[in-house]
């Protein structure tokens, strides 16, 4: 284990990169999830189709293929992105497509009586969506979004294959510098596990907050 201690900076660089990419890509994914999820529910048909195409394409193609495509193919179109930017884009867009189904599903699962009551009280469609449906859908989105964030964290490992020095990349670096196998990979796996625990904890906290605000906790 002392070999690992000596290589701690390599490990730290990796874990910080992984955390940074996870946060940036999650933000992009949530934004895309809302855009596409609401797009799918739009009364305007072209918007619905656009959202559907986005969701199907980014869910239908393997993430690694998307990453490689952006990394190797985009330059042929004159678009050269930093590997980290490529990583955030690919992870954010792909997970956003999965998240869009969460957003759409949660909004659709708000009981129908709620939109009827909003209609009877003469809320406009937009007002009903933003004031009645979305606030009630968000607590339902949190648990699946928590799972999605974990999936995204795990998916960040793939960015090591496009030269980003993340935690997984450093696993191989450590393996080569220490000439050991078990220790570097175990430490790296533990690093991911730790981040996952933090993410799970944060989402639990958010769930408790929103539930309390819904008055469910105040019983």
């Amino acid at each position: 284990m002392s070999l690992i201690y000596e290589a701690r900076w390599v490990f730290l660089e990796g874990i910080l990169t992984t955390i940074k990419i996870t946060i940036a890509a999650s933000l992009l994914a949530f934004a895309m999830a809302f855009l596409a999820g609401l797009g799918r529910l739009s009364p305007f048909a072209p918007l619905r189709w656009l959202a559907l195409v986005y969701i199907e394409v980014f869910r239908g193609v393997a993430l690694l293929v998307q990453l490689f495509w952006m990394f190797f193919v985009l330059p042929f179109f004159g678009i050269v992105l930093d590997p980290i930017v490529t990583a955030v884009l690919a992870l954010g867009l792909c997970n956003g497509a999965y998240g869009a189904e969460i957003v759409r599903g949660a909004i659709k699962s708000v009981p129908h009586g709620q939109s009827e009551a909003a209609c009877a009280l003469n809320y406009s469609r937009q007002q009903a969506l933003w004031k009645i449906l979305i606030p009630q859908a968000i607590p339902m989105m949190l648990p699946p979004f928590g799972n999605l964030a974990i999936e995204l964290l795990k998916a960040t490992a793939l960015v090591s294959l496009i030269t980003v020095h993340d935690l997984s990349f450093q696993a191989l670096t450590l393996q080569q510098t220490t000439m050991r196998t078990i220790e570097p990979f175990t430490v790296v796996l533990a690093g991911y596990f730790l981040i996952a625990i933090v993410i799970t904890g944060l989402f639990r906290l958010a769930e408790r907050q929103t539930n309390a605000r819904l008055g469910r906790g105040a019983r």
């Binding site: 009981p111 009586g113 709620q114 009280l121 809320y123 007002q127 009645i132 606030p135 605000r213 008055g215």
Partner: peptide, 25 residues
């Protein structure tokens, strides 16, 4: 209209259930 299943907005207090439509609509 008043519904069989009440259809109050569960994320709002009693007061806000009445106030919000007055403000928003």
């Amino acid at each position: 209209m008043v519904f069989q299943q009440f259809n109050l907005f569960p994320h709002w207090s009693v007061l806000k259930n009445v106030v919000n439509p007055l403000r928003t609509v």
